[in-house]
Structures are given as C-alpha cells and as structure tokens.
Simulated assay, not measured.
Amino acid sequence: MGDVVLRDADRPGDLGWVLMAHGERYAAEYGWSVEAVTARIVADFAASAVPGRDAAWVADLDGRRVGSVLCVREEATTARLRLLLVEPDARGLGVGRALVERCVGFARGAGYARLVLWTNEPLAAARGIYLAAGFVLDGEETHTGFGRELLGQSYVLDLAGPEGAP
C-alpha cells in the first residue's frame, strides 16, 4: 500500500463522498440508517463553512478517498468534530488518529477553547482514538436516531489546557 495523504476536502465530489461513505459503511457494518443525519451535516457545512473557523479533510490512499473528518463551529469558543470515518482497508494505518489530530490542531489554531463530539457506544475503535487524543466522556443518552436504540456519547476536549493554549 502507498502513503496516506491528508488534504482539505475541497475537490469536486469530496463532500458527496463523505455522505455516500457514511451511508454505505454504517449500513454495512451496523445496520444503521445515517444518511439523513449525515446529509444535514454535509449540507450545513457546504452552505455555511467559514474559512479559518470550519474545515474538512479527506484521507487519500493510493489516490482514492479512505477517510474523512470535519471541524465545525458550535459556538464562539467551541468547535465540533464531525463525521470521522475510515474505510476498512485503511484501518490500522493511523488514518483515524491522523484525521483527529488534524482536527484538534485546526481547532486550537482557530482559537477554540473546546472541541466536542458525539458518537455511539458501539464505535469502540473511534472511541479509543478520541480517548488517546485527550477527549473525556461528558455524558451518555439513549436515542433511536439511526433506526434502532443506541447509547449516544458526548465527549469534550479542553483546548486551552497546558498542551497548547491558543
């Protein structure tokens, strides 16, 4: 396999791929229907991203898309990590970790004090990446947003801490 390249998600089709990959991957691996939620996130990003405050990245492996993550403004001092995904054949190569690190670094550089995210309990590999990056569980709540009952989890990362205050 070749090298993984992280790049801005600014090429034609990048955001469409994010939507498609999430729909296909979560249906195949978990039986979840995530396209309505993902479509809203992608559409909101495409319509209102502010350069320097919002960003999206794609990971390419051998010239094809294999991962994604977005960093979006939640409020003046808080950003939200959204839509982390790594395709199965790119897992174990550090793609998820690299995408999360890119998002965290961007949020710090943009001057956010906190980075938050929401995920679901079955996504253990992603949770491991978030915990390794310093995120802390902030709350849990059941929901049925993806067609079945799941335990949603909220995480927070203090960006103004000793590791890199803006």
Rank of each mutant, 00 (worst) to 15 (best):
G2N: 14
D3E: 15
D10G: 11
A21F: 01
R25C: 10
A27P: 01
A28T: 01
E29N: 10
Y30T: 00
G31L: 00
S33A: 13
A36E: 03
V37Q: 13
A39G: 09
R40Q: 13
D44P: 04
F45D: 01
F45E: 02
F45H: 09
A47W: 06
S48K: 10
V50D: 06
V50W: 02
R53L: 10
A55R: 06
W57E: 09
A59H: 10
D60Y: 12
L61V: 12
L61A: 14
G63E: 11
R64C: 12
V66A: 11
G67W: 05
V69D: 01
V69C: 03
C71A: 11
V72W: 01
R73W: 06
E74C: 12
A76I: 09
T77M: 14
T78I: 06
R80T: 08
R80C: 08
L81Y: 07
L81T: 02
L84I: 08
L85V: 11
L85P: 04
E87N: 13
P88R: 13
D89I: 11
A90Y: 07
G92D: 11
G94Y: 06
G96F: 05
R97N: 07
V104T: 09
F106N: 04
A107P: 01
A107Q: 04
R108H: 04
A110M: 02
G111M: 10
G111Q: 09
Y112P: 03
Y112C: 08
R114M: 12
L115A: 13
V116W: 11
T119F: 03
T119W: 07
N120C: 12
P122V: 02
P122T: 05
A125E: 10
R127M: 15
G128H: 13
Y130P: 14
L131H: 13
A132D: 11
G134T: 03
V136Q: 10
D138S: 15
E140D: 12
T142A: 15
T142C: 15
G145Q: 13
Q153P: 10
D158Y: 05
P162I: 13
